[in-house]
Design a protein around this nucleic acid. Structure first.
Lengths: 223, 223
DNA sequence: GCATAAATACCGGGTTCCCGGTATTGATTC
DNA sequence: GAATCAATACCGGGAACCCGGTATTTATGC
């Protein structure tokens, strides 16, 4: 294989880190991942602390982190927010040996992109990494079912901000690219009212400008 | 059941429309959906045109539309963009009897949120509707696999706009709520450079302000 | 070596946004 | 009927954004 092809190959591969206290699990999984031609497992860590420290001093975060939920020291669930703060664009897939509803929910709430059982086949994990890079939410079917049942009854996070229908409507048009004047015309209300709605949304979502509002609304599916 | 409970019950249910030329399929599926306690199938249409017309004159779009991909007249794939234009927040799940890669890709590109085989059990469809409302992407496992294989080799849509790594980085920080000055500090470049990057992104994404940029970048998974 | 593209940097001026207020109406709730 | 909330509306000023330029350096490609 020539150097050029080699570089091209590397570019295509999805970069992945593993964070798991079980050393042999890390070795086995990283080898399996590297055998696939779409993923490179750059490195693995045996504690959240080590991974976060490396992330902070290094300016090349991976595209995906596989994060064990149950570890000595900082728990996986607690590491999510730190990781997301340092590397907002890195997708996190949680790995777990057991399945407590609360942990699943907490993880997804804090920014994890997926949730898999450690008993999954390497092929399933590879597929999950690919899925998450394309924007999907890889969840073990067992977990999906459990989540669906548990989540659907109560109100999801989406309702936590108490946005009114009108406010959501304003966000929708704003996210289409309209400015306040255009939204006003669209909704047949005055410019001032639109501005008031936006100010109220800012408070409810705890943001201070439109782009953050749009980002939060889309990411948290408020609109 | 009292009236209050009745109203509360209705509020919780996910509103769904079915668009499928097969009349008995519509009847059977809508009955199955209504039997669940989480979904209300408000109405069904036997052509995309009818559904779109109703959507235009009515200001209560459903939360989810199940859309057959193969219909006489306007094809399901072509209806997606019209539906998304009228009701941007409505999630669309495509139904299909067959599975061509191109159709799957086109549908997702145009804004569909999921893709199911019509041979799926009603229970699977119910779960898919719930999934899509929580932000997931329900895809039939058969389809997922096919997609993953086909998509991963070539560059995904995300590359169509030719955003540079630096530009994506700028969008990421902007979408966190930072202003240009803060992004400049974050990236150790000047305010002017950030503004230049943003201007260039505007051109590439064909938008004219930050909130549209953020919305597009997130929706099309550019960041 | 020359074209192309990415990343960097600067300027000026018009527009829009952001934020602090205040206030009225109508519907719901207690 | 008082309180609360959503939706409506207005004002003013300072900050940030948008857009039209121009320009240099470095890296990549042919």
């Amino acid at each position: 294989m020539s150097t050029q092809e080699d570089i091209q190959e590397k570019k295509k591969r999805i970069s992945v880190w593993i964070v798991d206290d079980n050393k042999s699990f890390c070795v086995v999984l990283s080898e399996a991942l590297n055998r696939s031609n779409s993923i490179t497992c750059d490195r693995y860590f045996h504690s959240s602390r080590q991974a976060i420290e490396f992330l902070e001093t290094n300016n090349h975060p991976p595209q995906v982190i596989l994060l064990d939920i149950k570890m000595p020291g900082t728990k996986g669930v607690d590491a999510i927010e730190s990781i997301k703060r340092i590397a907002p664009s890195t997708n996190i897939i949680m790995l777990t040996s057991y399945d407590f509803d609360t942990d699943i929910r907490t993880s997804l709430k804090r920014g994890a992109s997926g949730y898999l059982l450690k008993s999954s086949q390497p092929m399933d994990i590879i597929r999950a990494i690919q899925t998450v890079q394309k924007g999907g939410t890889p969840l073990d079917p067992m977990i999906t079912q459990r989540m669906t049942d548990a989540f659907i009854a109560e109100n999801p996070e989406s309702d936590a901000y108490n946005l009114s229908a009108r406010e959501r409507e304003v966000i929708r048009w704003i996210s289409q690219g309209m400015n306040s004047a255009e939204v006003a015309q669209q909704l047949s209300i005055t410019y001032n009212t639109v501005e008031t709605h936006i100010k109220n949304i800012f408070h409810k979502l705890n943001v201070s400008n439109r782009h953050a509002m749009v980002a939060k609304a889309i990411k948290e599916r408020l609109i």
